[in-house]
Amino acid sequence: MYRVLKATQLADRVFQMWVFAPHVAHHAKAGQFLIVRVNESGERIPLTISAVDGDAVRIIFMAVGKTTELLSSLRPGDMIRDIAGPLGRPSEIATYGTCVIIGGGVGIASAPIIAKAAKAAGNYVIGIIGARNSGLLILEDEMRACCDELFVATDDGSKGIHGFAADVLKAEMEKRTIDCVWIIGPAIMMKVTSGVTKKSNIKTFVSLNPIMVDGTGMCGSCRVQVAGRTRFACVDGPEFDAHQVDFDLLMQRGRTYQPEEHEALEHYHEHSCSCKGGI
């Protein structure tokens, strides 16, 4: 059992939570993730390790399904049944020169820990965070503190630059030499944004978030196609060379359980009044 230490809402349906999990906190590196199982009847879902402080790790998630809604209902002092991690390979941090860390939507959660690591490795770090609107923008102050420069973009122009993170990236690429890019966000956003760096052949990483079960390489649910080869995001990733990833397939496989996800959420809403998710 792992105790929730802090729980706050960051934006519309976006929550952050600090959880006591020393085995994860003491070993976590930028780019890794953990697996959460909220209670005895829960599913195992992967979430990025967004920050580490002593014995605690931070997770940030959007309440879009049964499990994330249930998770968002937990208060400090409540227990999470299981947390496994850290999982996956850490980000390939090296001294590249000028790095751009791009976070889109709830994917911004992964950005500060990578930005900090890149900065510590001696890179000049540019942050770009984007969201549909200002109300969905998270971790702006934190990113500002750990990046040399930060750009903010919103799809509707309600804050910062009116446009996509890809537009900001394109503009910066024209102004200066960029050596390495990380893009973390929804699959479609990663596909579009990594298209920008493809022509110039800039080293670009994306962090993939396919459906997982065990997260340790045992089931193959998270298989993705990278450079025409089957790779497991849980043990070979989650970060891959953006220009080699089959994003269409990633999106197709991500939709596998859409009807079931809908059913689980409805079932939860019907039953959540008296027996909060438990059996």
Binding site: S41, G42, E43, R44, K66, E263, A264
Partner: peptide, 9 residues
């Protein structure tokens, strides 16, 4: 499922 949260086709 949905008594348990993990689905299977």
């Amino acid at each position: 499922f949905p008594g348990y949260d993990t689905p299977v086709k």
